[in-house]
Write a protein that binds this DNA or RNA. Structure first.
Ligand code: SF4
Ligand code: SF4
Lengths: 149, 149
DNA sequence: TTAATTTAGCACCGACTTGGTGCTTTTAAA
DNA sequence: TTTAAAAGCACCAAGTCGGTGCTAAATTAA
């Protein structure tokens, strides 16, 4: 539980993939094959990322997707929001769903938690995911870039 | 998305409630009424917390639930794990579901994120949620208007 | 022009999860 | 014995998630 969706996972993988390929246009078919993920679903995800203008799309033969100018400063938080909708740790945030916010004794702490979780997601950028980039984090043992919370 | 479930939310609220009531046994009906949450569901949650021995249960008239000795050092992470099952930020953790962990370029960063998110949840204890406790975190909105019992 | 390749849009489905309820049994106090 | 309460367990409706089908539009190559 408290799991990232496949959409986010595939999206992050795709962005890392495109980042390491720099300028070229890559088709969904090519990417899906290399990444070993379902092509149709990856396509949906890439459409969303293109709509959000993180990547450029090009139709027709030799078309595909390409990194936009420099999206490496986008954070994991941004990607998750684009692909899963607004990140709401509880139902109290926009005051809509919860009717007992005024008397809730845990609201204070909970919103602190939510804030920090968002902080974590915002502390990682695409640069951290992109192989070849100086900030890339390879498997388990990597210099800990601690967050500031 | 990336939302806490109601089970966790109700569980945390219930624990905060019990914490501020110290020694007494409180029945589900009483708690549900004061907290304005569905009684039957709250009951299910409390059962789980009792099974995990964070709270004591007592059947029969004047029975109910009560804080166990001193669970204030339990963290939000613990509660969420009890009520939602193991917290898995992605599917790679126990090596079961994911078949491409070896070639995954984002695995390093993603597991760092997961680790830090868990760290956040582990950084808050029941003490932070319990009104009256010196470590309690009040929200601006709730300052004076805590539920009276 | 025509055909092929590729993204865009959008609806849809099956499986699982979540929030919530019903009902019966057990425990314990009055 | 009656009554208040938790324990256990099954069940349901609605939503989410992973994934697919299908058609249309754009671009390139012949
Ligand atoms: S944490 Fe409190 S204020 Fe927020 S949704 Fe839950 S009950 Fe409402
Ligand atoms: S992050 Fe990589 S290793 Fe982990 S589940 Fe996703 S693809 Fe597998």
């Amino acid at each position: 539980m408290l799991r990232l969706t496949k959409r986010s996972e595939y999206g992050l993988m795709a962005l890392a993939y495109l980042g390491s390929r720099a300028a070229e246009f890559c088709s969904v078919r090519e990417m899906a094959e290399d990444m070993a993920v379902p092509a149709r679903l990856l396509a949906e995800v890439l459409k969303d990322l293109a709509r959000a203008e993180l990547i450029n799309s090009q139709r027709g033969p030799n078309g595909g997707y390409q990194f936009a100018k420099d999206p490496t400063h986008f954070t994991i938080f941004d990607i998750v929001e684009i692909l899963e909708g607004e990140v709401q740790f509880t139902n109290c945030a926009p005051g809509l769903t919860c009717t007992r916010e005024s008397s809730c004794t845990i609201h204070g702490a909970i919103s602190k938690v939510a804030e920090q979780v968002k902080g974590v997601l915002d502390g990682f950028t695409l640069a951290h995911l992109t192989p070849g980039h100086p900030d890339h984090m390879m498997s388990a043992a990597t210099a800990a870039k601690s967050l500031q919370v």
